[in-house]
């Protein structure tokens, strides 16, 4: 394909997809190891009411109020979950289930009864995003990458996602040692003076930032898939955390690229003429990768620890 076609139509969605996938997969590694994998699922459900309320207050689709609304909703959810868990002595999974379904239902309800028909905000958009539409029409070819005028009209999701990725990357690198120790042996980490509770909270916050930014660009389904599938597949490849993180990044990028290409061009190869959902395809590809890892990964089986019933 020539640069004239690739750069404006495919480069930006592809990059946004890759950035979102990696930004979610990095914290996902620790969440999977800490058995908090479903936090990504919960976060991507609870941000919906926050985003809708922020939209209703400001009356416009703009990034910052929506991010704030999403963050507020996430904090509210965490508080509610803790409250229910402590007061009712309810197991965390069920407490989480109560909160995220109710908040999601509330978001859907106000979305349906308020008048949002004039703008592009609906449940389907929240679920599977709109990756294909994030095109860069001002580009004319590879040369546009060095053209200030054209760069100004990049879809705003791209720089936002890039910044998010940098933040997530910085968090992971700076806190690598404490994160690693606290993930594998919380008691030992405490004796070394690591504040494990604050660290756990920080990890959840970073996951929430990645989820909200990616949610805005690519929809919640990629967010959930990328938090879990690449790290889970990587976990089946190796015993070392460093290698696992590397594998997960590779898997996330592979899923994003193959998913995007298959969604865009797969139907054409099969004789169809319309593309299918890129977000759905990326999630599907991450599942294919996980399935391959589960079948052939060198460290797939459980050794040592007995399986839990």
């Amino acid at each position: 394909m020539s640069g004239e076609e690739f750069v404006p139509l495919s480069l930006t969605p592809l990059l946004i997809g890759i950035f979102a996938a990696v930004a979610c997969a990095l914290p996902g590694n620790f969440l999977v190891l800490r058995r908090q994998a479903l936090i990504g699922d919960a976060i991507s459900h609870v941000v919906l009411p926050g985003i809708v309320v922020a939209f209703l207050i400001t009356g416009a689709i703009s990034a910052w109020p929506m991010m704030l609304g999403a963050a507020g909703a996430a904090v509210l959810a965490v508080v509610l979950i803790e409250l229910i868990r402590r007061m009712g002595k309810i197991e965390p999974g069920a407490a989480m289930g109560v909160v995220f379904t109710s908040m999601f239902a509330f978001g859907v309800l106000i979305l349906e009864v308020s008048d949002t028909s004039t703008v592009h905000l609906d449940v389907e958009h929240a679920l599977y995003g709109n990756l294909e539409s994030l095109i860069w029409l001002d580009a004319t070819g590879w040369a546009s990458l060095f053209d200030i005028d054209a760069l100004r009209y990049l879809p705003p999701e791209l720089p936002r996602m890039a910044v998010t990725l940098v933040v997530v990357l910085a968090f992971t690198l700076v806190l690598w040692r404490p994160l690693k120790i606290a993930t594998f042996d919380e008691g030992f980490a405490q004796t070394m003076g690591i504040r494990t509770e604050a660290l756990g909270m920080g990890l959840v916050i970073i996951a929430a930032i990645a989820a909200v930014a990616a949610f805005d660009a690519v929809g919640s389904i990629i967010v959930i898939a990328m938090f879990i599938c690449p790290p889970a597949a990587a976990r089946l490849m190796t015993d070392s955390l460093e290698a696992q993180v590397m594998w997960s990044v590779i898997f996330a990028i592979t899923a994003a690229i193959t998913g995007y290409v298959l969604a865009g061009y797969g139907p054409l190869w099969l004789g169809g003429n319309d593309a299918v959902s890129a977000a759905g395809m990326i999630a599907t590809m991450s599942g294919v990768i996980l399935a391959l890892a589960a079948l052939f990964g060198p460290r797939r089986s459980r050794t040592g620890a007995p399986s839990e019933a």
């Binding site: 908090q36 990504g40 699922d41 389904i221 599938c229 089946l236 169809g272 999630a283 460290r299």
Partner: peptide, 28 residues
């Protein structure tokens, strides 16, 4: 049962992958 993944990771993986594939089918 057969891999070292914990139940929550398996839940999340099945949930997101099946749902993603379903979305693909809906667009088809």
């Amino acid at each position: 049962r057969n891999t070292r993944l914990a139940e929550d990771a398996a839940i999340g993986a099945v949930l997101s992958v099946f749902f993603g594939f379903g979305i693909v089918l809906l667009t088809v």
